[in-house]
Amino acid sequence: MKPVRFDYERPVEIGAALALMQDEGRVVKIIAGGQSLGPMLNMRLVQPELLVDITAIPALKRIEDTGSDLIVGACVTHADFEDRRVPDVTAGALAGVARGIAYRAVRNRGTVGGSLTHADPSADWISILSAVGARVILRSASGVREVAVEDYMLGALAADLNPGELLEAVRIPKCSASARWGYFKSCRKTGEFAHAIGAVLVDPDRGVFRAVMGATETRPILVIDRAALFGASGFSTGAAEEVAQAAGMGDLLDRRTHAVALRRAFEQADAA
């Protein structure tokens, strides 16, 4: 199990990386931590002609505080969040979730930008970053655009990334002191990809209510209307199942599992 031969370049500036991606004569792939691409390369499911390693670009490892948001470079790793080298602006949500992604050796190299772009519906960042209302900043030779994380995933393994575009950073809005979060990942073995995810952020001072049913077959289901999930007697699993059905989740067992994952996420948020 070895990858096909490929060329390798390691630019130190975003501009140089974007220029390399313009090469129409070759199949060019970006590599960040390689923790998703590596297995696919080893199995020859992906056969690039040029790998552009973006991990030597300091601008992609930058963290910036704008006052209202924290901007985190695409090449910041899961372990950077876990160990709080990334300042906490979400009442501990991102560090808490990062801790449960894969295994420590994978977290030491896997990046937030790589995870979002790989767009596995079962991955953790897509769900929790949708719940905290984060956005991705995408850069190409012609400029910059921003997309909400929940819209960045188009479907299984498909991100809204145009040819020649790079995920530069993630914009994370700062929570208020009143914020509470919950996250429940249903999987049979720790460190495994989830079968169902419930992710919740409630921030009354900012008027934010965001609930996510993740690890669906495709994009995460985001609910921002509290009334769609809560009845007179609190959280309604039945209502959550209806939301899932309306979003196209056809299988009953799937809907139940996702509704229960979401309920548990709310229970965790309430207990906080």
């Binding site: 390689g34 030597a56 490892k61 030491n108």
Partner: peptide, 18 residues
Amino acid sequence: LGPVGSGHAGAFAGGADK
């Protein structure tokens, strides 16, 4: 910050296997 192992070397161009 960033993937463990990265960031110790500068630019690398043309690992051309061609």
